[in-house]
Design a protein around this nucleic acid. Structure first.
Lengths: 147, 147
DNA sequence: TCCTATTATCATGAGGATATGATTTTTGCA
DNA sequence: TGCAAAAATCATATCCTCATGATAATAGGA
C-alpha cells in the first residue's frame, strides 16, 4: 500500500520526535531497524523537503524542522511515492482524462480520496499521541523501546 | 496503489464480460492495450484461480467461469498482490503482532479496512453497470470501444 | 591544529515486477 | 489427416526498488 521507503521515513520521524527532536542516523537506524546507509539517503531527502534540518560533524544529526503538529503525513509520503500515487484510477496507470472517466472511476475515487485525506489531516503529532495512549494501556513490558 | 498486473486483470475481465463472456487473448490485449504475452500469463493465473475457463485450439479463448455478480474484485487482486497486502500496517512490512500494535495501528486500520471492504463488496457486475451509466451520460463519441 | 564523529555522495549489486520472443501442446475444422 | 488457431510454457531482457560498501566533505572538540 505504501512503499518500504515511505514507511521507513515515517518511522524515522517518530523516532526523532521521541528522542527530543534530534538524533543521528545510527541511533535512528538502530531504534527503527532500518539499514543505516539507506536511511541516510531517506533523511537527506526529508532534509531537502524542509521537514528536517541536518548538521554534520561530531554531535551532529537530524532535527525536526517544524513542530510535529505541523508535519502532515502526506508531505512525508509525497517525498517518496510516485506523484501519480493518488491520481491513478483503478484500471489505469494515469489519471482518467478529463470528461472521460474509466468504468471504475466513480466507484474508486471516493476510496482513494478518503485515503488521501487521511494522510493530509493526520500529523506526526497524532502518531505520537497514539503511541502515548498505547503505552498507557499496555504498560512498559510491551513497549521496551520507550523505557 | 494496485500493481499494474492487477489493473490488467481487472480490465481484461471487463473486456471479456463485454464480449459476451468469451474472448481470446489477442482480442482482449488489443481492446485493453495490454502486452499480449504478458496478458496470457495473467489470464492463465485467473484460470487456475477458478475465475476463468480456457479452451485451446481454433475458436478457443477464455470464458468467465461465473456470472459477473459472483466475481468479487477482491478475488482478482488477491491473485496478484502480496498476501500481506491488507495486513501490513503503516509502519511495517508485516501485520502488527497480536496485542502489540504499532503507534499508527489504531489510526490506519480503519482506512485499510474500508479499502478491503470495497474490493470485497464490489463485483465485476458493478463495474459493468457503472460503464453502462457512463455510456448513457457521455454518448458514443467518448466511448468508442462500446460501439 | 589534528582527530574523530557525522552527513553527503558515489558506485555497485540483488531481486522482483514488467515485459518480449520463441517454442510446445492442444484442438477444431476443412 | 493435416493445417491453422489458440493456450501453455520456457528463456531472456529491462527497469525500478531496496540495499550495501566505500569515499569525500564538514565540523566540533581536545
Amino acid at each position: 500500500m505504501l512503499s518500504q521507503t515511505s514507511r521507513y521515513a515515517l518511522h524515522a520521524l517518530i523516532v526523532i520526535a521521541r528522542s527530543g527532536g534530534q538524533a543521528n542516523v545510527r541511533q535512528i537506524a538502530a531504534e527503527a531497524t532500518i539499514p543505516t546507509n539507506y536511511l541516510g539517503k531517506i533523511l537527506h531527502v526529508l532534509g531537502r523537503r524542509g521537514l528536517l534540518r541536518s548538521s554534520r560533524g561530531a554531535g551532529g544529526g537530524f532535527q525536526l524542522a517544524r513542530r510535529p503538529e505541523e508535519i502532515q503525513l502526506l508531505e512525508v509520503i509525497e517525498s517518496f511515492e510516485d506523484p501519480q500515487y493518488f491520481a491513478r484510477c483503478l484500471l489505469g496507470s494515469e489519471r482518467c482524462p478529463e470528461g472521460r472517466p474509466c468504468v471504475a472511476h466513480g466507484l474508486w475515487v471516493p476510496i482513494v480520496e478518503q485515503t488521501r485525506r487521511f494522510f493530509e489531516t493526520t500529523t506526526l503529532a497524532d502518531l505520537l499521541a497514539e503511541g502515548q495512549s498505547l503505552a498507557a494501556l499496555a504498560g512498559p513490558a510491551h513497549l521496551p523501546e520507550r523505557t
